[in-house]
Amino acid sequence: MLFRHTLRTSAAALALLLPFAAGCGGPAQAESPSDLSSVTLSVGATGWKTEEAVLKYAHLDDTPYKVRWSQFQGGEQQLQAVRAGALDLASSSEIPPVFAAADGAPNFKVVAVQRGATLNQEVVTRKGSKVTGIAELKGKRVGYVQNTTAHYFLYALLKQAGLKWSDIDAKPLLPNDGLAALNGGSIDALASYGTSIITAHQQGARTIGSGKDILSGNFLWSARDNVLQSPARRAAAADLIARITKAYAYVRDGREEGFAKITAAATHQPLAQARKDLVDAQRQRPTRARPVGDDTIASQQRVADTFTELGALKEHLDVKSFWTNALDADLKKAL
């Protein structure tokens, strides 16, 4: 059954990454803050490595340090990889760091915020389904990506419709497994994001709920502690985050068509749709990084409190404990 392939199975996949953990940077004393040539950053990407692609498109991939990109189906897996020592830098929504830190001993800190669009974050039903709204999900089998934005906005949409989490038969699934389960009839609806939602629509899926106006648009960069302990690695991390901001500015400067072609090829969607999604996303909330702020910490605290209310977190979590301003100076300089 696809239901057996929950997010917990991703831990086994992370074991394959552990041999690379030793390559995630050497001892801090061996690195000069002005010489980044000895630095290698192992960086996570969700979906089709959008960040790597946009850097290359904007001719900003010629970094003075090495970047090793690893692809994941979600931010939750990236944070697991950070915890396992297999990633230096993870990008995710506000939610995965909450669960990664819930044991009280995280080996990472949130170091920067990347503002981004909240489009393609939806609850969908398959083609021909008689379910046309969230209220009709009572008693239905609903797939969702656990400990991610999909988990969060599905809970919020259920509350808006007067339903409790216990009113649905919730099935935690990875995005690709969820899409297969939806098309195969194993679930009645799917809460997911990104490429899986794009593909679902290509296959005739209908949107019955959206996280567009529920999610904050704050996407977090989390760095493993060993990155923060080295001036050179901090500088490299800040430079990479800033380059992604500059790359998207390059795209918005009349170059959407070219990047849409790259996106269409990677996501197997029509060029016109890829361009529309890109333009809509950048119009809704241009992709750009910013340093840590009290408002961004407070936003994630609201998210954590919601998961405590849901029962997904067993006790109150003070998110401020795993945020730091350690990258602020380097990031402001790089931007």
Rank of each mutant, 00 (worst) to 15 (best):
residue 234 R to I: 07
residue 218 N to R: 11
residue 273 Q to S: 07
residue 49 K to E: 13
residue 333 K to W: 01
residue 24 C to P: 02
residue 138 K to D: 10
residue 128 G to Q: 06
residue 86 A to S: 10
residue 194 G to Y: 00
residue 322 F to V: 09
residue 148 T to G: 07
residue 149 T to H: 01
residue 270 P to V: 11
residue 326 A to E: 13
residue 98 V to K: 13
residue 52 E to D: 08
residue 15 A to I: 03
residue 115 R to Y: 12
residue 152 Y to L: 09
residue 210 S to T: 11
residue 181 A to M: 00
residue 21 A to M: 00
residue 229 Q to H: 07
residue 89 L to V: 00
residue 92 S to H: 04
residue 49 K to C: 09
residue 242 A to E: 01
residue 186 S to T: 05
residue 178 G to D: 02
residue 235 A to W: 01
residue 289 A to V: 14
residue 279 V to P: 14
residue 119 L to S: 14
residue 239 D to I: 04
residue 154 L to E: 05
residue 314 K to M: 09
residue 49 K to S: 07
residue 11 A to S: 04
residue 101 A to I: 14
residue 70 S to T: 08
residue 103 D to G: 10
residue 255 R to N: 15
residue 123 V to E: 06
residue 284 Q to T: 08
residue 169 D to P: 02
residue 188 D to S: 01
residue 124 V to R: 01
residue 220 L to A: 10
residue 4 R to M: 04
residue 108 F to T: 04
residue 299 S to A: 15
residue 266 A to I: 05
residue 65 Y to F: 15
residue 299 S to L: 13
residue 206 R to D: 06
residue 332 K to F: 09
residue 134 I to Q: 01
residue 145 V to S: 05
residue 327 L to K: 10
residue 285 R to V: 13
residue 63 T to H: 08
residue 162 G to P: 10
residue 316 H to C: 10
residue 10 S to A: 05
residue 89 L to F: 01
residue 15 A to K: 11
residue 271 L to S: 06
residue 135 A to L: 04
residue 151 H to P: 10
residue 143 G to F: 09
residue 303 V to T: 09
residue 306 T to S: 14
residue 180 A to N: 06
residue 116 G to Y: 03
residue 25 G to C: 01
residue 181 A to W: 02
residue 88 D to V: 03
residue 50 T to F: 10
residue 244 I to F: 00
residue 174 L to G: 03
residue 324 T to A: 09
residue 11 A to N: 06
residue 6 T to F: 02
residue 226 N to L: 05
